[in-house]
Amino acid sequence: KPRTPFTTAQLLALERKFRQKQYLSIAERAEFSSSLSLTETQVKIWFQNRRAKAKR
């Protein structure tokens, strides 16, 4: 499955949200993903990867 190329605007929004909160609830994820027109899975995986990156 090819990787999702996120737009610059989407990445900025994701990073901004991540700075506020490293873990999203299911409801927050649903709302946030639709506002960015991404799937919930894409947002979930992005947050997982971003948390892993923050640990390094």
Rank of each mutant, 00 (worst) to 15 (best):
K1V: 08
K1M: 15
K1C: 14
P2F: 10
R3N: 15
R3Q: 15
R3S: 15
T4W: 05
P5Y: 12
P5I: 12
P5H: 09
P5L: 12
F6P: 03
T7G: 06
T8G: 09
A9K: 12
A9R: 08
A9S: 12
Q10S: 03
Q10P: 04
Q10F: 00
Q10A: 00
Q10E: 01
Q10N: 07
Q10T: 09
L11I: 08
L11G: 03
L12Y: 03
L12G: 14
L12A: 11
L14G: 02
L14H: 05
R16P: 01
R16C: 14
R16H: 13
R16N: 12
R16V: 12
K17E: 05
K17G: 03
F18N: 06
F18V: 00
F18C: 03
R19G: 14
R19T: 14
R19F: 11
R19V: 11
Q20T: 06
Q20D: 12
Q20L: 06
Q20P: 00
K21V: 13
K21C: 09
Q22F: 08
Y23I: 12
L24K: 04
L24Y: 09
S25K: 00
S25D: 12
I26Q: 13
I26F: 10
I26W: 08
A27K: 06
A27G: 05
A27V: 10
E28R: 00
E28F: 11
R29P: 03
R29K: 02
R29M: 15
A30N: 09
A30W: 05
A30V: 11
F32N: 00
F32L: 13
F32K: 03
F32I: 08
S33D: 08
S33W: 03
S33M: 07
S33N: 05
S34G: 07
S34F: 11
S34M: 04
S35Q: 15
S35M: 11
L36W: 06
L36F: 03
S37F: 02
L38E: 08
L38N: 03
T39A: 05
T39Q: 02
E40G: 04
E40L: 04
E40K: 01
T41R: 06
Q42A: 13
Q42D: 13
Q42C: 05
V43K: 02
V43I: 10
V43D: 13
V43W: 05
V43H: 05
K44F: 04
I45Q: 09
W46R: 00
W46E: 04
F47A: 02
Q48R: 03
N49W: 14
N49V: 06
N49L: 08
R50G: 00
R51M: 10
A52H: 07
A52G: 09
K53F: 07
K53I: 13
K53T: 12
A54V: 10
K55Y: 05
K55P: 09
K55G: 09
K55C: 08
R56L: 05
R56D: 15
R56P: 13
